[in-house]
Simulated assay, not measured.
Amino acid sequence: MKFHGTPLDGAYVIEPEPRGDERGWFQRVFCEREMADAGMEGRFVQVNNSFNAEAGTLRGLHYQLPPSPEVKIIRCISGALWDCIVDLRPDSATYLGWHAVELTGENRLAFYVPRGFAHGFVTLRPNTETLYLASEFYDPKSERGVRWNDPKFGITWPVEGIVISEKDAKWPDFDEDFHGVESLRGI
């Protein structure tokens, strides 16, 4: 696996290295040892799978506060999505910065999202399926979200006509107190 840094501190794009022969190919998509050698966390307790029938479906931007902040690895296994993260760690040099990566079933890339980042994606094709690993169990008491189109972040989403849940559409404008960013200091 190859790990490519992004403009946001601690976030990586993971590129698998397929090995093939006349039968097809094989590739490693996760290796705890390689990730540790690259300075990333590699303990995961939950694997989540989402399917989105329509292009333009948006999920996020979600994160969890302490004691349950999570690392995620996201991979699109069919279709295509635009995966976006926002750095919410107040002591980070990239605080409130965002970065996005196009993940597709064909490019097989994965996105490593550190603790203290909000994460979300929008599907670029119908019938898009995503698989992601999470380092912490879902904790509804720790759950938070930031609004996908909050002007504070200035995210330039690549599609219009967003299909979004009522819950995700109603996250309030960014507020350091409500969003608990002080608790993300030092993560």
Rank of each mutant, 00 (worst) to 15 (best):
C31R: 15
C31I: 10
C31Q: 11
E32Y: 12
E32T: 13
E32P: 03
E34T: 00
E34G: 03
E34Y: 13
M35W: 15
M35C: 05
M35Q: 14
A36W: 12
A36Y: 10
A36N: 13
A36S: 12
D37Q: 14
D37W: 08
A38H: 14
A38N: 15
A38V: 08
A38E: 15
A38D: 11
A38C: 12
G39V: 11
G39L: 13
G39I: 14
G39A: 01
G39P: 04
M40Y: 11
M40N: 05
E41S: 07
E41I: 04
E41N: 05
E41K: 08
E41V: 04
E41C: 03
G42F: 05
G42Q: 00
R43M: 04
R43C: 02
F44P: 01
F44W: 05
F44D: 00
F44V: 01
V45I: 09
V45H: 06
V45L: 08
Q46T: 09
Q46Y: 01
Q46R: 05
Q46E: 10
Q46D: 01
V47A: 11
N48W: 09
N48V: 03
N49C: 07
N49G: 04
N49P: 00
N49E: 10
N49F: 13
S50D: 06
S50K: 00
F51C: 04
F51Y: 15
F51M: 09
F51S: 08
F51R: 13
N52H: 10
N52S: 15
N52V: 02
N52W: 02
N52L: 02
A53W: 12
A53Q: 11
A53S: 12
A53E: 12
E54T: 08
E54A: 12
E54M: 10
G56W: 06
G56E: 10
G56I: 05
G56K: 04
G56H: 03
T57Q: 10
T57D: 05
T57W: 08
T57L: 08
L58W: 11
R59V: 05
R59C: 03
R59N: 01
G60P: 02
G60N: 06
G60S: 02
G60C: 02
L61V: 10
L61R: 04
L61Y: 14
L61I: 10
L61N: 02
L61W: 12
H62P: 04
H62E: 10
H62Q: 02
Y63V: 07
Y63P: 01
Q64A: 03
Q64Y: 03
Q64G: 07
L65R: 14
L65E: 03
L65I: 06
L65F: 00
P66L: 14
P66R: 15
P66Y: 15
P67Y: 14
P67K: 14
P67S: 07
P67W: 12
S68M: 04
S68T: 13
S68N: 13
S68C: 07
S68K: 13
S68D: 13
P69G: 09
P69S: 15
P69T: 14
P69F: 13
E70D: 11
E70G: 03
E70W: 09
E70R: 01
V71A: 04
V71R: 06
V71T: 14
K72S: 03
K72H: 09
K72E: 08
K72W: 06
K72A: 00
K72G: 01
I73C: 00
I73H: 01
I73F: 00
I73G: 00
I73M: 04
